[in-house]
Design a protein around this nucleic acid. Structure first.
Lengths: 248, 248
DNA sequence: CGAACCCTTGACAGAAATCAACTAAGGTGG
DNA sequence: CCACCTTAGTTGATTTCTGTCAAGGGTTCG
């Protein structure tokens, strides 16, 4: 089975409603490649040539400026990224590197643009995807501006718990240093702030987190629909490990 | 002339390519109202009933959480906001209040959704609008995470200068306290940081800012296409006074 | 004329970044 | 298989930055 025929891709919110002919057209020049950890997939500033779909592994989206670097999102299967740049035919605002050995599908941006002009159903899907992605970034920005780092960590942990099916115990999906960057702080600060949350109903063991007093943690985090998102309304599928923030 | 027929609206990037019939359908139930300064237009958490178009005046988009508040954008004529919420039929993530006495057009969200399903040209326009808006917020988030407040202020001033036609002297478009909030700091800090930029080639007089040494200021700001945006690619028309961040 | 309100400034407290050192775990190559 | 190297994570000490509290000047608007 060619990867293109995988129902996992065909059934992505972005692709599931389009005509078969359109889908075939999209996949016509699409290539799937494997990448080793650490590899650079795209670099910010480069022209947006391909829409990327992560089939296996994990990809980090990050931004650089004047030597500083910050993680914007982690995309896991099956998720897409840099849709917006492809649509506007504009330079990538973010870079992407392989976090875990990955298989990635690359759909030519020109095909993408051609297809949503011909297939109204696909156009509607793109609209939904972009609107969700937009809202996801707005939520992220709200969290950064309205919450302290302590509160961001606490609410992140609660989101992870919810994603694990409201489990009290779960494993952080990525390195702590990456999480720190995603949440907008240094690794040192993250370490300390996380430690400081232990008395608030938390037990820590490496990457494993156990919530021992949910009420107390919620009292710190004060979770809010309009920031933490009740729904994975944004982001196609797996773009939400750092919970949210999707296509670039 | 009814406001709907105004070429200013019809020629917005969002509306200019749609069929006349679609446009008429959109405008059919659309109402235009005047609002006094300070009035609440929409409240975060409310269901998204209307796409808003600012015809006159100025509207502030802001977010609230646990008593704290932050400005997300200022929309001026002719700009739209909360497109994404309308499309997803989801609650507003931001509130809107009148900054300067305004005339605002409200397009029922249900009509909006119906029309872009029927008119592929309009769908494409919505896609472009959303992709631009998405990129605008990503830039904003990058600025918040990668730059210090001093750097954010300096680069904001350079953006304003550019927007004024690369003029060395210009007037800040909004209150300083609002600017501070938009840039992610307290008014006190903004005041101090702005003051501290004077030796870096700046002269201040109330809301008027004069750049006396552009090279020096650029050395502080280190402007970057991928954050400051070379192009007003996002945001329909006037959504860019705090330069960027558009429809919610 | 008074009441808000914006802006600024100062003093202070709290938060976060930085610098540095140390541990532990994982991977590499001998 | 072990020694070594790299790197994530932690912790401490310190500095820098930012928010908070408080007060005063200036302006606008009722």
């Amino acid at each position: 089975m060619r990867p293109h025929d995988s129902p996992e891709i065909r059934h992505l919110p972005l692709f599931r409603d389009m005509l078969q002919a359109s889908y075939d057209a999209l996949m016509h020049s699409t290539q799937t490649e494997r990448f080793a950890a650490g590899g650079e997939l795209i670099r910010q500033g480069d022209p947006a040539d391909f829409l990327h779909v992560v089939l296996e592994g994990a990809v980090e989206l990050y931004a650089r400026w004047e030597g500083r670097e910050t993680t914007m999102a982690v995309v896991r299967p099956v998720g897409t990224f840099i849709l917006a740049a492809c649509i506007r035919d504009a330079p990538y605002l973010m870079s992407a590197r392989i976090l875990e050995p990955a298989r990635v599908m690359r759909i030519p941006a020109s095909d993408l643009r051609a297809v949503f002009r011909r297939d109204p159903e696909f156009a509607v899907s793109v609209i939904q995807e972009l609107a969700g992605a937009y809202r996801a970034v707005v939520r992220h920005a709200k969290g950064l501006k309205l919450r302290t780092s302590r509160e961001r960590i606490a609410s992140y942990l609660l989101r992870q718990s919810r994603q694990a099916g409201d489990a009290d115990s779960f494993v952080l999906p990525v390195e702590k240093r990456l999480l720190a960057s995603y949440l907008g702080m240094t690794p040192e600060n993250f370490s300390r702030a996380l430690r400081a949350l232990e008395p608030e109903g938390l037990r820590l063991d490496g990457l494993r987190v156990t919530i021992t007093d949910r009420a107390r943690l919620m009292d710190v985090a004060r979770p809010d629909w309009l920031i933490d998102g009740p729904d994975p309304e944004g982001a196609s599928a797996g773009a939400s490990l750092p919970p949210v923030a999707a296509p670039g």
